[in-house]
Design a protein around this nucleic acid. Structure first.
Lengths: 223, 223
DNA sequence: CCTACCGATCGGTAGG
DNA sequence: CCTACCGATCGGTAGG
C-alpha cells in the first residue's frame, strides 16, 4: 500500500489537522505538507487558466512545483480533486473580499462600484487564477462536485444580490436585481478575455466605467 | 499515400470546388463530400461546446456522424482544423445576422435591442454551438490560427461599434462605445452559462432587459 | 471512407 | 515524496 497524506482521500475540511490530540502543537511536517498542497493548488490554477483542465497534465503541475509525475497524488486523490480545490479557493477568496466590501456599508451606488472593483481584482489581481478557472472549466467538473461548488457560489450570489436590492430600492436600477446581477457579473467576468494589466486602463477605471454604464450618473445624482 | 479529399490540407477557400473545369457540373461526389464535411463541423461544434476541445476526441466526432475513428482526417488535416472550421462558421453566421440587422436602419435604441436579440440567437438558437466554442475554447487555438480568426472577429466588432456610436451620438450611452461594446457583449456572452431555453424568460425578454439596463428608457424617452 | 496500426502520452498505482 | 510501471487512450497515418 502506498503511503498517503491523510487528507488526500477525505473531504478536506473533515480531517485536515483536526482529529489530532489538541494538546500537541501541529508538527512541522504537517505545515510543510500543507504548504506543498498549497503550492500544487496555485500551480494548478495558473496552468488550468492558461491551458484548460483537459489541456493540462498532472505532469505539468508536478513539474511546476518540482515534483515527480506521480507525487501530486500523495496530496490529492485525483486530478478532479485538484480542480475542486482551485475552484473552492477562488470562491473562498471572492466571498471574503465581497463580504469585506459589504461590511463598509457604503451608499448603494458606491457599494456597487466597490464590489465591481473587488471582483475585477479577483480576476486580474496578482495570483488570481482561481475564479477564471471556475468560469472556464466548469464543464470539466463531474456532477457531484458541481453540486458542492454550487453551494459555495450561491453564497457569493446572495452577497451581490443584497447590494443590488438596495440600488433597486433607491430607483437606481432599471431591471430586477437577479437579472441585473447576471448581466453585471457577466460583463465583469468577460474582462478575463480582453483586459490586460499594464494597458491603458486601471482596474479602478474599468470599474468606474462599468458602473457608469449600468447606473447612469444622472439618475444617481437626481435622487 | 492515403487518398485525401483535395481540400483537406489546403486553405479552405482556395481549392474548394473551384479550379475544376467550369463547363463540368459539380460532381455529386463533391456535393456529398461537402455534406459530410458539414456534418463533421456541426457534430464537432456540439461536442466541443459540451466537453471542450481538449475533452473531445476525434473518435467522439467520428462516432457522432457514423464514421470510423480515422475517417475525419479524410476531410480535415488535423483536429485543430476542425476547431477553426467551427469558429469560422460561428463568425460567418454571426456576421451575416448582424449585418442583416444593421441593414434595417432602425433607430439607435431599437437597433441595439435587435442586435442583442440576434446575438442571443447565435448563442441559444437551434444548432448554434459555434460562438460558444469560439468563446470557451479560444485558448486551445494555436497562435497562427488565432490571427486568422481575429481578422474575422474584427469585422464583427466593427458592425457593433457603428450601432453603439449612433447611440452615443444621441446621448443615450453613458460610456465610450468601445468599452460599452465589451461590457454588453460580455453580459450577453455570459448568458451561455445560465440561460436555458424553455425557462421563464424568452430570448426577446432577455434582450429587452439587457437594453433596459444599459440604456435606461427614461433617457431614451427624453431625447 | 475503412482497416489496421503506431508512437506518444495520459491518469493513476504498488511499493518503498 | 520518488521509482518504476501499467493499461487505456489519444491524434494521426499507410495503404487500399
Amino acid at each position: 500500500m502506498p503511503a498517503r497524506h491523510p487528507s488526500a482521500k477525505a473531504p478536506a475540511t473533515a480531517t485536515r489537522g483536526v482529529r489530532r490530540a489538541p494538546s500537541l502543537p501541529a508538527p512541522l511536517a504537517e505545515a510543510d505538507d500543507l504548504n506543498r498542497r498549497g503550492d500544487i493548488v496555485r500551480a494548478a490554477a495558473r496552468l488550468f487558466r492558461e491551458k484548460g483542465f483537459e489541456g493540462t497534465t498532472v505532469r505539468d503541475i508536478a513539474g511546476a512545483v518540482g515534483m515527480q509525475s506521480g507525487s501530486p497524488f500523495y496530496h490529492f486523490g485525483s486530478k478532479v480533486e485538484m480542480l475542486v480545490a482551485v475552484m473552492e479557493e477562488g470562491l473562498r477568496q471572492g466571498l471574503e473580499t465581497t463580504r469585506a466590501v459589504l461590511a463598509r456599508e457604503l451608499p448603494p451606488r458606491e457599494c456597487l462600484r466597490a464590489l465591481v472593483e473587488a471582483h475585477l481584482r479577483t480576476i486580474h489581481g496578482p495570483g488570481s487564477d482561481f475564479i477564471p478557472v471556475l468560469l472556464y472549466d466548469w464543464r470539466s467538473l463531474p456532477e457531484p462536485e458541481q453540486r458542492r461548488i454550487v453551494a459555495w457560489r450561491d453564497r457569493y450570489d446572495v452577497a451581490w444580490q443584497s447590494a443590488l436590492e438596495a440600488l433597486r430600492a433607491d430607483g437606481l436600477l432599471a431591471v430586477e436585481p437577479k437579472l441585473a446581477r447576471l448581466f453585471i457579473l457577466g460583463a465583469i467576468n468577460f474582462t478575463a478575455l480582453w483586459y490586460r494589466r499594464g494597458g491603458a486602463l486601471s482596474l479602478a477605471e474599468v470599474a468606474e466605467a462599468a458602473v457608469d454604464l449600468f447606473v447612469p450618473q444622472r439618475a444617481a445624482a437626481a435622487r
